[in-house]
Amino acid sequence: MATIRELNKWANAHTSIPLDLLRIAFGAFLFIKGISFFTEGKYLHEILSTSGGFGSEMLLIHYIAFAHMVGGVMIIIGFLTRWSIWAQLPIVICAFLINFIFEFNLSNTLQAGIALLLCIFFLFFGSGKHSADYYLQMEK
């Protein structure tokens, strides 16, 4: 717990508007991806079917889309950012690995790789000074 406090203090001391804009853009990207997975269910179905077919494929499709949409909104406003990133991390890691294990797609690999790097960065950095987390912390 002390490590998280120290990370928050460091992040709040070194925060800037461009990092907050990056967090907001990343959250918007995840939210848009979630919407695209709901509207284009065949696309995610094709991705998951190349991996040999899962018995619970519909459950995975809905989990991924819902996690991206809710997590994206939470990352945008900076509310429970690290928890949202923890929920996104398995999805993003699997998205990155699927491109190497099954069918390689450069565009998807770049998107998943950048998303993975941003997840790791914001997992340590947190939501920053211009966020709901910081506001609620200051209300204590």
Score class of each variant (00 low, 15 high):
1 M>C: 12
2 A>R: 09
6 E>W: 07
6 E>L: 14
11 A>H: 01
14 H>C: 08
14 H>P: 02
15 T>N: 14
17 I>C: 12
18 P>M: 08
18 P>R: 10
21 L>D: 10
24 I>W: 02
25 A>W: 02
25 A>G: 14
26 F>K: 00
27 G>D: 09
27 G>S: 12
27 G>Q: 08
28 A>C: 12
30 L>S: 05
32 I>N: 08
35 I>N: 00
36 S>Q: 14
36 S>Y: 05
37 F>K: 02
40 E>F: 13
40 E>Y: 09
41 G>K: 11
41 G>P: 09
43 Y>D: 04
47 I>L: 15
49 S>G: 04
49 S>Y: 10
54 F>G: 04
55 G>P: 09
57 E>V: 08
59 L>P: 03
61 I>M: 06
62 H>Q: 13
66 F>C: 08
73 V>M: 15
76 I>N: 00
76 I>M: 13
76 I>Q: 01
76 I>L: 11
76 I>D: 02
76 I>F: 07
78 G>F: 04
79 F>D: 06
81 T>P: 00
85 I>D: 01
88 Q>C: 10
89 L>I: 14
90 P>G: 04
91 I>N: 00
92 V>K: 01
92 V>F: 07
94 C>Q: 11
94 C>V: 11
95 A>I: 04
97 L>T: 06
97 L>H: 03
100 F>N: 07
101 I>G: 02
102 F>G: 01
102 F>C: 05
106 L>V: 14
107 S>N: 12
109 T>V: 08
109 T>P: 01
111 Q>T: 08
111 Q>P: 01
113 G>K: 07
117 L>R: 09
118 L>M: 15
123 L>I: 07
125 F>Y: 15
125 F>A: 10
127 S>W: 04
128 G>W: 01
130 H>P: 04
130 H>S: 10
133 D>I: 05
137 Q>G: 06
139 E>T: 12
